[in-house]
Nucleic acid binder design. Structure first.
Length: 452
RNA sequence: GCCGAGAUAGCCUAGCCCGGCCAAGGCGGUAGAUUCGAAAUCUACUGUCCUCACGGACACGGGAGUUCAAAUCUCCCUCUCGGCGCCA
């Protein structure tokens, strides 16, 4: 949420931001008008109330002095004031409620460094890492969704049965790889100074509003029937809202939390060749890093956060690139955002690198500045005697698991259809070095002619 | 789920029965005075909004109501604590 004073004083900046982010469904002039009218009413209401307070206290005095006649007169005056006050304040309350709703739909203003653009084509590639010394790949890399089925470590069909499309079972070595990735990432971020959290998975509407998923993006999330609860769309929501309405101390900052959670997203209508397999699913695990920092340090924290997320891929020795998002590709809440995209060589896509394959977004690192803090009431006291100020929040995935798994299954694939396990993960898989897969189970396995 | 008790400023606490006279007091913090310096002491400041300002309004968990007037009375909600029940 933007500061109302800021909006009054810098309307042109807000208009520019709306245009750069391509937001067209907000009537900013109406907001300014409402605010103007509200302030007038507020001033009038304050005056009336002042008058009433004076009359009221006089009534007390008169009554104690035993001057009942004059007291009754004063009561009459007070009653008249009351009626007028009510109409003024009702109108003001109406306007303020409207204003609050509208303000929740005003997006964050992009940081001045962010390249202005119209679409994702205007995003800038900052750098590319890990392509100098590539692994020897099979002639034809099998896409993860075929390989996962062949090795019987990913079972989408049976998940469709128990749950629906867009979900999957991981089995045996597949599930082990998932756990190994989790443990590995969490341990790495611990080294980077993160304190673990395991949050509640359902979150209420207030939390969803605090981080900006509501009110505009309700249709992206799963809602529990009969409850004011949503299935966690990202750990950002419970973790950022953890300190809602708290006042933190200067010495508390920066606070760095990491949290593993499952994430649930409806992803309505997202089916096609680009989303085969487990690259876009309704439930996936992710380790999220969230930083709470003093305002003037948030851009340092941003650079550090990108590096902390990258470290996962560096250690796994997976090639990737860093993309700087242009204004059009910034989210509603974001002032600045970098994406990290890992290289997955299994599927040819037009916008992939020269080496073939495609890019998969595995992390998004964002600085929200005080946008979320203002919505959620996240403050700190810069000096003991000073009044509280909004902090800055940032977060970054570190990382989203399924797409890392895709990259591993494709990039670490061997000629014989097995997958070499990246070294840092082996300690978490009982020393296992290669994923060899399982015999399929059930009558359908007979069709493959592999069981007598 | 049931019964009971509670929620007051950054923190701790009074006021609530019995409505009216700045939400009293303490702690912590900042500045000043004092001091060679410190401790102690004293003074001022230490929530939000509107206003260029003077000033004013609001704020006692949240919301609604009663009243000329609500921290105080009534109702609803949220959360916390205690007891009982249920439960992995």
């Amino acid at each position: 949420m933007l500061d109302r004073n800021y909006i009054r004083d810098h309307p042109d900046e807000v208009r520019a931001a709306l245009e750069q982010k391509g937001v067209e469904d907000v009537d900013f002039d109406a907001i300014l008008d409402y605010d103007e009218e509200w302030r007038e009413l507020k001033a009038r209401g304050d005056d009336l109330r002042h008058e009433r307070n004076q009359v009221s206290s006089k009534i007390g005095e008169l009554k104690q002095a035993g001057e009942h006649e004059e007291a009754d007169e004063a009561i009459e005056t007070s009653q008249e004031l009351k009626a007028e006050l009510e109409s003024v304040e009702d109108r003001a309350a109406e306007l303020e409620a409207k204003l609050d709703d509208l303000l929740l739909e005003l997006p964050q203003i992009p940081h001045e460094d962010v390249p202005v653009g119209d679409s994702e084509d205007d995003n800038r590639e900052r750098r590319r890492e890990g392509f100098d010394d590539l692994r020897e790949l099979p002639e034809e890399v099998t896409p993860h969704y075929e390989l996962g089925e062949e090795l019987d470590i990913i079972d989408e069909a049976r998940a469709a049965k128990t749950t629906g499309s867009g979900f999957y079972f991981l089995k045996g070595e597949g599930a082990q790889l998932e756990y190994a990735l989790l443990q590995f990432m969490l341990e790495l971020h611990r080294e980077q100074g993160y304190v673990d959290l395991f949050p509640p998975i359902p979150v209420n509407s207030e939390s969803m509003t605090g981080t900006g998923q509501l009110p505009k993006f309700a249709e992206d999330a799963y809602k529990l029937e009969g409850e004011d609860l949503w299935l966690c769309p990202t750990a950002e929501v419970p973790v950022t809202n953890m300190y809602r309405d708290d006042i933190l101390l200067k010495e508390d900052l920066p606070i760095k939390h990491q949290a593993y959670t499952p994430n649930f997203r409806r992803e309505a209508g997202e089916h096609g060749t680009e989303t085969r397999g487990i690259v876009r699913v309704h439930q996936f695990n992710k380790v999220e890093m969230v930083n709470f920092v003093e305002p003037d340090t948030s851009y340092e924290a941003f650079d550090r956060l990108v590096d902390e997320a990258e470290e996962v891929l560096r250690r796994l020795d997976l090639p990737y690139r860093i993309l700087e998002m242009c204004t059009a590709d910034l989210g509603f809440t974001q002032a600045k955002k970098y994406d990290i995209e890992v290289w997955a060589p299994g599927d040819e896509m037009d916008d992939g690198p020269e080496e073939g394959g495609r890019w998969l977004e595995v992390s998004s690192v964002s600085n929200f500045e005080d946008f979320q803090a203002r919505r959620a009431g996240l403050r700190y006291r810069p000096e003991r005697h000073e009044s509280a100020e909004y902090i800055h929040t940032l977060n970054g995935s570190g990382l989203a698991l399924p797409r890392v798994m895709v990259a591993i299954l494709e990039y670490y694939q061997n000629d014989d259809g097995t997958v070499t396990i990246p070294e840092p993960l082996r300690p978490y898989m009982g020393g296992k070095e290669v994923i060899e897969g399982h015999e399929p189970v059930g009558e359908s396995a007979l069709g493959a002619g592999e069981k007598d």
